[in-house]
């Protein structure tokens, strides 16, 4: 029995290790390519670590390209998207979780519909709609579009968070003298905030931290750093938050 248990434990750890290796190796390769000098890129392409590592790509990206501007813009867009998505989707998620009303199933259907077609299809019409408003080449336009793309999933996520919070809390707050909206703002939202700003907001932050600039792995690594850091921070809350009842008592 103990022998069997030991073997199982060892197998379990090995399996976990295999997963970690599988998850990390491509990231390691990204890093490896980014520190390989251009002259060695092809001759030492297959080595696990170049004979000579250099930061030349990083230096180039940071000084000679428009990377810093892009990086800044990307940060602004992602951060504002995250904040707006959190606010807007928590309101809708609350309505879906707490109210029984006609039209609720239509809203769910609408949200699901938005997940069903390739977004490419929207680009031309959207361009046509936004250009008279002068939003085509602006960060504001980008934020609006990203928010709209992220809101359906975020709303579902928020709804499941709210479903995990007992209704008694709002009832108590309303008896204590709060309106429903005050109860939502002061009691329900703070409770989900720890669990939700992280996943909902920062996930849109992470996924929209797009790096469609430069084919350079160095730029990729640089752009990845904040995304990965955020993700390492949030992933714990993500699982916790998805578990209904994580916020109970």
């Amino acid at each position: 029995m103990t022998r069997k248990r030991l073997i199982l434990t060892v197998l379990h750890r090995l399996a976990v290790l295999a997963y970690v290796a599988f998850a990390l190796f491509p990231l390691f390769w990204l890093l490896k390519v980014s520190v390989t000098p251009t002259s060695l890129l092809y001759t030492e392409g297959v080595r696990l670590w170049p004979s000579q590592a250099s930061l030349e790509h990083y230096k180039f990206v940071l000084t000679h390209s428009s990377f810093p501007t892009f990086f800044l813009n990307s940060t602004i867009v992602s951060a504002s998207t995250a904040v707006i998505v959190t606010i807007v989707s928590s309101l809708a998620g609350y309505a879906m979780s707490r109210f029984v009303f006609r039209g609720k199933y239509w809203i769910v259907g609408l949200l699901l519909l938005t997940q069903m077609f390739p977004l490419v299809m929207l680009i031309a019409p959207m361009f046509k709609m936004l250009s008279p408003l002068g939003l085509t080449n602006s960060l504001t336009g980008l934020v609006i579009v990203y928010v709209a793309f992220n809101v359906p999933f975020a709303t579902f996520l928020m709804q499941s968070f709210f479903d995990g919070i007992p209704k008694d809390l709002e009832d108590a707050a309303m008896i204590d003298g709060a309106t429903r909206f005050t109860a939502f703002r002061q009691i329900i939202l703070p409770l989900t905030l720890k669990a939700t700003t992280f996943p909902v907001g920062l996930l849109s932050f992470v996924s929209k931290f797009s790096v469609d600039f430069g084919q350079m792995m160095a730029a990729g690594v640089l752009a990845l750093i904040p995304a990965c850091l955020f993700f390492l921070l949030i992933q714990r809350y993500l699982v916790q938050g998805l578990t209904a009842g994580a916020v109970k008592g």
């Binding site: 976990v16 491509p26 890129l41 752009a223 990845l224 993700f231 992933q235």
Partner: peptide
């Protein structure tokens, strides 16, 4: 282990495609 295993999700799709294309290439 959990944090590390979930990390790929944080990588933008564009970048992960590029990365894997490199890894499949026999030269690099």
């Amino acid at each position: 282990a959990q944090a590390l295993c979930f990390l790929p999700w944080a990588v933008p799709s564009f970048l992960s495609g590029l990365d894997w294309a490199w890894m499949f290439n026999p030269v690099v």
